[in-house]
Write a protein that binds this DNA or RNA. Structure first.
Lengths: 190, 190
DNA sequence: ATATGAAATTTTAACACAAAATTTCATATA
DNA sequence: TATATGAAATTTTGTGTTAAAATTTCATAT
């Protein structure tokens, strides 16, 4: 029986690069903000050198993502890295609204889209409209979700799906039970 | 009480164009194959003129998609067109393997990705490997699915997810109950 | 042993031009 | 009288070139 070391999901460098690109930041920009050299950052993103936890924390802060984005709750088997995400090993993506728990179903951040599993807690709601330059499709696995897109409101039930394309939206869970939604976003925002 | 006319989902022109583009076919190519004029086709894709059922059937055949792709099983409300797909109005996407029922969760074919809901019947299996130049992510909603990617086999359970990136794959439902999978494909293949 | 920063390399951006694809519309057709 | 055609007009996409920007490499310093 071995001690559980803190391990990333095995795709750290590629994830960091994808994250940086999705924000339109260059290595030069980031290195200046972090006070590190460009060469070092380049190596980190290619898994040639590995950042300490503190450095990783600094990067996470720079991109406004939770540190948890880089860690699955359990370790992936070697042959599953980049291919399979087990239910027990999904990465938490915090940062969003309260009453909303998001986890990543994609194995890393390098695809042209991202797939999330979102749990909307009972009576949770997003107060203010959000707009993103993305195409998003969601599917209600269970529960109910009220969705406002521009000036329309839709009452969605289990089995319904929706699309948002750069339009402003907000949501509310009108029920006393969780709503579970599979949510696809392109291009990636995390 | 009114008679139910055969109505497309309200996104026919755009869907036809997306479908044609996804196959890398030009209006000229298609018009020659169909024996119709380029101008007319152009107008169909812009909803300026509407094809007859026979013409639509001809197009469907040309693209090797079922005619059902263009019809939801019930009519969408005007303000939901292009935004919401109700559980009862999903479009059937046949053509795949036997023992597999696929429905479209995306409201049309014009996104950078497509979201499907696939039902794998008990003990259904895909005999031969498939390879597509796509990025695909799937999420097991319920049931079990065995998935082969290249030379590895994975036993997936409810809650697990996977990614396939241009790799050859095949699948089998090892159970006596349906497996339900939300499947995302980019770029679109339908 | 690791990080740095300047040099070397690779990638992306910005044009300009040609080719291809699509739209428009006056006319023919049913 | 509405619809389809096909040639002309327009728009979009592709190609090749060069410069700028971004990234990688690697000899040296820490």
């Amino acid at each position: 029986m071995s001690i559980n070391f803190l391990k990333t999901t095995g795709t750290l460098g590629a994830d960091l690069r994808a994250l940086r690109k999705s924000r339109g930041i260059t290595l030069i920009d980031l290195s200046e903000k972090m006070g590190r050299s460009v060469g070092w950052l380049s190596q980190v993103e290619r898994d040639i050198s590995s950042p300490t936890i503190n450095e990783l924390r600094q990067i996470a802060k720079e991109f406004q993502v939770p540190l948890s984005l880089f860690f699955g709750s359990s370790e992936a088997k070697a042959n599953e890295v980049g291919r399979i995400v087990r239910k027990s090993a999904r990465r938490k993506i915090g940062g969003g609204a309260i009453g909303l728990v998001e986890e990543l179903l994609s194995p890393d951040l390098t695809d042209d889209f991202e797939v999330l599993r979102s749990v909307f807690n009972p009576n949770a709601k997003l107060e203010n409209f959000v707009t993103r330059p993305t195409q998003e499709v969601g599917y209600i696995v269970s529960g109910n979700l009220n969705l406002w897109i521009e000036d329309e409101m839709f009452e969605l039930e289990s089995g319904d799906s929706f699309r948002i394309r750069g339009e402003q939206f907000k949501w509310a869970n009108p029920n006393d039970k969780n709503a579970i939604v599979i949510w696809v976003i392109a291009p990636p925002i995390y």
